[in-house]
Design a protein around this nucleic acid. Structure first.
Length: 419
RNA sequence: GCGGCCUUGGUGUAGUGGCAACACAGCAGAUUGUGGUUCUGUUAUUACGGGUUCGAUUCCCGUAGGCCGCCCCA
């Protein structure tokens, strides 16, 4: 084979596309119920946008961006995530302010130059939401509930919501230095990556999966207690969020090791994870980002949002529902026999379609037998057979494929019958 | 970016240092214009490039891609 798709990119084939459509439909229905509006931003942005929002030292920015210079010598990237472009668009078009709530959703491809693996692609798709204008934990809860209800609508039950708070710009630095102090004596025993994290982002050490590192952090997590490291405001926010979720009967698990890799998160962070996905188990990730709008030069507008990974969601759906494949359902298949019949068939086909009937015909001059075979394969309900005899009599043979019966009627009667 | 495993028709799988096998799908046919069953035929430069060899699909090296783990995340 001469050409193949680029590494980490994949084709969504007709067989799988209906599943994507089903998911997209379920999402947009929910978004509307929750009063979110769609926004579509370009897939390319200036490099700086992400360096600033996501964080210079994060993996996404430091090694995973598809960046290049365009013909005008601009530094551009294929977007690695959806939040930064939306904040940019909102500020550019004045969509947000601290006096009003703005709720948006998006759907589209994202790009990260990583080593591909199951559930991890270089081009992948996210559906996500962003809600601007309120620091109320009830809004955090709304976003979590929205994600959960989408999964529920899709019939997915074995998912787990992990919840944490990473604090704000007041308490996070304090916690970082407290963590460093705790870890100081143990750091020599820890892994290489944790040494880097110790300097760059000590919170991430909690997220390390190596047993030796976890043993050390286990003790620390116990010492730290429930949410002692948070300031009064963040602690109150976290407590309120938990009680709202409790009152809504949303199941969640506090996971103090949940630290997300994007620098803009403050207070609430959460993930929805599936046990059936292997290492790449997060189907949805989100949280609050109260400083991002201000960092981008806007006024101080708090915000919260999430993103769902489409490929991973599709994967779970496929595991759950092996026979989710949908056949094309054509109502009428026209089978002409001979040249004269073919031109009449083209005319009938167009009339049927204009009447709102999904219809198709043979374009390969196949024998009747072969045409019926195709009609059967595509799941046609009726086949209209048109040969010299029928042309003479100005009627058609309408065959009911399920009932295994057929009759001679006029084309007008066919339309009336099927419609 | 690091480590491990893998790559044979459209799909799923055999197999051997000497003609590449099977199933399913596809297409064609089984006397006139009738499908979903049956039968017959047909469908591959064994991922790509190089090396060893009289001869490589098989052994070796490289490349590409996939999968798994790390990292990270959706």
């Amino acid at each position: 084979m001469k050409y193949q798709s680029l590494r980490g990119m994949k084709d969504i084939l007709p067989e799988e596309a209906p599943l994507w459509q089903k998911i997209e439909a379920a999402c947009s229905k929910k978004f509307q119920q929750f009063n979110y509006q769609e926004i579509r931003t370009p897939i390319m942005e200036m490099t700086e946008l992400f360096a600033r929002a996501v964080g210079q030292s994060t993996d996404i920015v430091s090694k995973e961006m598809y960046s290049f210079t365009d013909k005008g010598n601009r530094n551009v990237v294929l977007r690695p995530e959806g939040t930064a472009p939306i904040v940019r668009a909102c500020l550019e078009h004045n969509l947000i302010s601290k006096d009003k709530i703005t709720k948006l959703y998006y759907f589209g491809p994202m790009f990260r130059y990583e080593r591909p693996q199951a559930g991890r692609y270089r081009q992948f798709h996210q559906v996500g939401i962003e809600a601007f204008g309120s620091a109320d934990p009830a809004l955090d809860a709304e976003t979590i509930l929205l994600a959960v209800s989408i999964f529920k609508d899709l019939g997915l039950t074995d998912l787990e919501v992990d919840l944490n708070s990473v604090g704000c710009k007041e308490c996070r630095p304090r916690f970082d230095s407290r963590l460093r102090a705790y870890l100081k004596g143990f750091i020599v025993q820890m892994c290489e990556d944790c040494h880097i994290r110790y300097k760059k982002n000590p919170l991430r050490i909690l997220d390390c999966k190596k047993p030796t590192c976890q043993n050390i952090t286990n003790e620390i997590l116990q010492k730290i207690g429930d949410s002692d490291y948070l300031c009064a405001d963040c602690k109150d926010h976290f407590e309120k969020l938990k009680s709202i979720l409790d009152s809504l009967s949303v199941n969640y698990k506090i996971n103090k090791r949940l630290v997300r890799g994007l620098d803009y998160y403050t207070k609430t962070t959460y993930e929805v994870i599936s046990s059936s996905l292997g290492a790449q188990n997060a189907v949805c990730g989100g949280g609050r980002y109260d400083n991002l709008v201000e960092d981008f030069g806007g006024s101080s507008v708090p915000a919260v949002g999430f993103a769902i990974g489409m490929e991973r969601l599709v994967e779970i759906m496929k595991l759950k529902d092996q026979n989710a494949k949908l056949k094309a359902n054509v109502q009428l298949y026209i089978a002409p026999l001979g040249e004269e019949a073919k031109s009449k068939a083209v005319e009938y086909l167009q009339k049927a379609r204009e009447a709102g009937i999904s219809a198709d015909m043979d374009y390969q001059d196949k024998k009747l037998k072969a045409q019926l075979k195709i009609a059967n394969a595509i799941g046609a309900k009726y086949v209209l057979i048109l040969g010299d005899d029928e042309l003479k009599k100005n009627i058609v043979v309408l065959r009911d494929m399920q009932a295994n019966s057929q009759e001679e009627i006029t084309f007008e009667e066919v339309l009336a019958r099927i419609r």
